[in-house]
């Protein structure tokens, strides 16, 4: 892993993007989009998280595949937990909204 010293301009750019997205997500939540409110909120959160991971945590610039593997597999495991639980909760019984 070689060290990359990124320009501070890039950091400020990411920071502004994160601020804008925060304001947007809070604003969009007050508009009725039906089921899309949740989807938009999660999409914005994910893009914010990606900005932090890729730039602030330097994952975009690391030559190390292992770091990416660790991130991807931990997210995969989290999804395993959620989806396999849902095989039960999604089909259990009527009566819960």
């Amino acid at each position: 892993m070689s060290e990359h010293i990124l320009s501070s301009k890039l950091y400020y750019g990411i920071w502004i993007a994160l601020m804008v997205l925060t304001v947007v997500t809070a604003g969009v939540a007050t508009i009725d989009l039906g089921p899309f409110n949740t989807i938009v909120a999660l999409l914005i959160a994910t893009s914010k998280a990606l900005l932090v991971i890729l730039f602030f945590m330097h994952v975009k610039y690391t030559s190390e595949k292992l770091t990416k593997m660790v991130i991807i597999s931990s997210i995969f495991w989290l999804l395993l937990l959620l989806f396999l639980s849902l095989t039960d909760y999604g089909t259990r019984y009527a009566g819960h909204g």
């Binding site: 396999l84 095989t87 039960d88 089909t91 259990r92 019984y93």
Partner: peptide, 9 residues
């Protein structure tokens, strides 16, 4: 747990 889930597992 649901029967469906039990079958999967």
């Amino acid at each position: 747990i649901s029967l469906y889930s039990a079958m999967i597992f």
